[in-house]
């Protein structure tokens, strides 16, 4: 599988959380919202967590992803 989809999907995900800053989604849940497969999204989400764009709560397939709001980073 080529990695060329990663950057566009990354933007798609970021945009989703920017537009819906109080979304709390699992991998499967987000895949459903975006109309993508969990397989494609998994790597993208890990990347966004490393970049501190998203936060992850919990582990495994029930891990919840949420937006690290720029103006909230210093608060929490």
């Amino acid at each position: 599988m080529s990695d060329s989809y990663i950057v566009p999907l990354q933007m798609e995900c970021t945009l989703f959380f920017q537009m819906n800053p109080h979304a709390y989604e699992t991998l499967d849940g987000l895949a459903l919202r975006l109309g993508r497969t969990p397989e494609h999204l998994d790597q993208v989400l890990q990347k966004l967590v490393t970049l501190s764009i998203l936060k992850r709560m919990g582990e495994g397939e029930r891990a919840i992803y949420s937006y690290n709001q720029p103006d909230m980073i210093h608060v929490s």
Binding site: H22, Y24, E25, T26
Partner: peptide
């Protein structure tokens, strides 16, 4: 206010 989107199970 917060408009939260989440799945019912979660």
């Amino acid at each position: 206010l917060r408009v939260i989107c989440i799945s019912p199970e979660i």
